[in-house]
Design a protein around this nucleic acid. Sequence first.
DNA 1: TCGAATCTGTAGCGAATGCTACATCATCTT
DNA 2: AAGATGATGTAGCATTCGCTACAGATTCGA
Lengths: 187, 187
Amino acid sequence: MATTAKKPPMSKDSLLPLLMGHVLAHGLGQASLRPLAKAAGTSDRMLIYHFGSKEALIADLLTHIAGVYAAMLDAALAASPRPGNRAELLAGLLAQNGDPAMQPFQMLWWEIVAGSARDLPGFRAAAQAMVTKLLGWLEAQMPAGEPDPAGGARFLLTAIEGAAMLAAVGHPDTAQDGLLAGGLLQA
Amino acid sequence: MATTAKKPPMSKDSLLPLLMGHVLAHGLGQASLRPLAKAAGTSDRMLIYHFGSKEALIADLLTHIAGVYAAMLDAALAASPRPGNRAELLAGLLAQNGDPAMQPFQMLWWEIVAGSARDLPGFRAAAQAMVTKLLGWLEAQMPAGEPDPAGGARFLLTAIEGAAMLAAVGHPDTAQDGLLAGGLLQA
DNA sequence: TCGAATCTGTAGCGAATGCTACATCATCTT
DNA sequence: AAGATGATGTAGCATTCGCTACAGATTCGA
């Protein structure tokens, strides 16, 4: 009689989005099996069954997150008009990074960077995938008439990531000022 | 008879350098009381006694690390000649960041950034202190005749941190290429 | 239909976690 | 000398950790 859905068959693919939600909300550092399982509506027992180990779960989860990120960029690329110049592109990127909706993703990103720096299993690959994707997206978004789109995209990427880091440590204006002084932004 | 030193009185100040050594070697994420105590030649019991709680210990440790970092920059400032131009300064900074001896510090740095992004107690303050110190150091190191040393320092800081992040995630050349394309480095 | 393979729940294990109770020892004041 | 104060060791507690053993349940092919 009850409206409870009986059999949505559980699988990695059905679990990963729920796990991602928990990790976005609470961070990777505090991600232990029982809370993760609770967030996904299962038990730690099942997580181990499907993923084999926590280490494998985290690795799978990171690749899934990288995939979601890539899809987001693809959607953004299809939706947004090509900016007219570098400053406009950079300003848009900074605004998007600063968007509160992006904050959980940003916080997760720094945990991935830290894990990548320590070469924890799965972290380096996910971080590289996301950076590579972002770099490609940037090249595609470079304004028409750029003499060196690849180099320009790499330049912007470096600036964006530096700005994101400074924002993360509570120097929100420092990067803005620097990019203005460097002529990458217009007042 | 034995040459064992009996009473070096234990204190926060005597413990912090040893704790820092352990954290540089193994990371903050795996820093639990018993291993930390072992590295410092004590017991978890004593760490709690001196610091009150693990949370307070970590906060004290981060402040200490920020102080050590500041002292390192002061020493470097006194020792190094003023570079002749921005590209020279930037190249020197990138080389220093890439130095293998700096790698433990870099890995720790990303953990601090991640903690700061999540606003873990003590992390934001330590990160801000270090960034502020580095920014001041950069301003003092800006080549003579710079029209806007403060803005230039912020610009370089953004670039350096972006480059460091890209190196941490296994894109070691991307930032280099970008900074070349951006005219901040000379080939 | 029936056996086999695939799922899932319950219960728990051994280790590690942060922290505490209690007793002991050293030192310092009066 | 006597007591007070601070420092240290031993032992343990309650909780959480990743993971496993075991037993039902379910599903699917023969």
